[in-house]
């Protein structure tokens, strides 16, 4: 019988999990405990519905509806002085809830505060582009599309950014294996030499413990390596590091190790 593999999440799993272990939570605080955040949240709440808001590790997280994102960021930029969009991306929760969480990391330089705006979208849904408000979202949204396949509406150039244009698959999805699928494994061979070269070039060696039969033994002990298969007695002669051939090189003076000068003082 084949062992069960979870197709929805192919990421590495810890080999041991404690069934009775319950993960603690990072402490969440009421927004009212911070004046600046409370005022900001009130300003957002006045115009847009907010489903949840709390302070976690000195930063406020605000949960909004997906359709409000443009309005919320516009309000934050123009009225609340959150002038920079530091970062935005998605988190894959397809396995659990068939949805993505999208986060926008905002920074106010006058208030010295950071707010994280979050919302969820269903798998296959698109987000509203905020590229008109923050140019930095231009590349962020492209990266999000590249990594998760989430498109941004009204984005001027919705193409892959990090992976090649002809790439298949979205690497940061939990369904995508770390070492890539078959398309990824043969991408460069197919592109450069064509599919018929696969056989000649052979599959990728991804097992880190693979040893070629030509490899030497004790290659960590510099100067004392021996060919594979040699019986190691422990007192093999030292393989001198030679820069030149034994017989000398035409027109070049033989390098003499004894006459070379070793500089001890690193601050010379």
């Amino acid at each position: 019988m084949r062992t069960y593999t979870n197709k929805k999440n192919v990421q590495a799993k810890p080999y041991y999990t404690d069934r009775f272990w319950k993960a603690p939570q990072v402490a969440k605080y009421e927004v009212e405990s911070d004046e600046v955040f409370a005022a900001d949240l009130a300003a957002i709440k006045a115009k847009f519905p907010v489903s949840d808001a709390f302070i976690q590790v000195e930063q406020m997280t605000v949960w909004i509806n997906a359709s409000d994102i443009y309005g919320v960021l516009e309000l934050m930029r123009d009225e609340l002085a959150y002038t920079q969009l530091s970062e935005m991306s998605a988190i894959d929760f397809i396995e659990q809830r068939d949805e993505f969480e999208i986060f926008y990391q905002m920074l106010s330089m006058t208030k010295r505060k950071r707010i994280r705006i979050k919302y969820t979208i269903k798998n296959g849904q698109a987000v509203d582009s905020v590229e008109k408000l923050f140019r930095s979202a231009d590349w962020s949204e492209r990266e999000m599309f590249d990594m998760f396949g989430i498109e941004a509406n009204a984005h001027p150039f919705m193409k892959r950014i990090l992976m090649p244009y002809d790439w298949q698959g979205y690497p940061l999805l939990k369904t995508y294996p770390l070492q890539g699928d078959e398309f990824a494994a043969w991408y460069e061979v197919d592109k450069i030499y064509g599919k018929e070269a696969r056989e000649e070039i052979g599959p990728e060696i991804r097992d880190t413990s693979t040893i070629d039969r030509y490899d030497s033994e004790r290659f960590a002990k510099l100067g004392h390596e021996v060919p594979k298969g040699t019986e190691i007695t422990g007192d093999e002669p030292k393989n001198e590091q030679n820069y030149q051939e034994e017989g000398g090189v035409f027109l070049i003076k033989k390098f003499d190790k004894d006459s070379s000068k070793v500089i001890d003082d690193p601050q010379r």
Binding site: G180, A184, E188, I201, E204, I205
Partner: peptide
Amino acid sequence: NTYATVQGVDR
């Protein structure tokens, strides 16, 4: 050892 790197330039 990921999807994006060529596993050795000798390929």
